[in-house]
Simulated assay, not measured.
Amino acid sequence: MKQLKSKYLFVYGTLLQDCNNEMSQFLEQHAEFVGKGFFCGRLYDVNEFPGAVSSSDMSKKVYGSIYKITNQELVFKVLDEYEGIAAEQTDLDLFKRIIVEAYMEAGHTVKTWVYEYNLPTLNLRLIPSGRYLES
């Protein structure tokens, strides 16, 4: 398992509380909601879920929620599997877990994990609002 460099997780898709599925409920049980915010990136419609790719372009934003993880080993073990990350991460994995700087609505920033889409985005539809539930 990756060294746990942050106790925070930024979610922007099917892990959002409003999705009300088994995995979003799992996250709610094992994490504390910290607030809403965004990170710099682009959000794509992959099919039945979104995929975000981080960017240095401050005009492109992916919106979501930030959680403080209470049991990091358990949570990341379960969520890495859910997000299609092999035990030894490869370039063929659907997502990769990376650290980004997220900007909180409250005005401060936090270093947080995010599941970044790991495959080509060339033929995917961009979600210009950066908000999955509004796409």
Rank of each mutant, 00 (worst) to 15 (best):
A87S: 11
N20Y: 03
A86M: 10
V11G: 06
T70V: 07
M1V: 08
Y117K: 11
S59D: 09
E81C: 09
N20C: 04
Y8P: 00
F38H: 13
K68T: 06
E48C: 12
N47M: 12
D80K: 09
G35F: 05
N20I: 02
K5P: 00
G41H: 02
D18M: 05
Q17F: 07
V46N: 07
H30T: 12
V11D: 06
G84K: 04
V34R: 12
K111Q: 14
I99W: 02
N47L: 11
T121E: 04
D57L: 00
F39G: 03
I98K: 11
Q17N: 13
Q72H: 10
D18N: 11
A106L: 05
I69E: 01
Y8A: 02
Q72S: 14
D18Q: 13
M23G: 02
F95M: 04
Q29G: 00
A87C: 10
A106G: 05
T14N: 08
L92S: 15
K60F: 01
T121V: 15
R125V: 10
T112C: 11
L126Y: 01
K2W: 05
V11P: 06
C40A: 04
F39C: 04
G130C: 08
I69V: 11
A31S: 15
F10I: 09
W113K: 02
E83H: 09
G13I: 02
E134F: 02
R42Q: 14
Q17K: 15
L133S: 11
T121M: 08
Q89H: 06
G84M: 05
L9I: 10
M1H: 07
K7V: 07
E83S: 05
L15M: 08
L74P: 01
D93N: 12
L119P: 02
F38N: 05
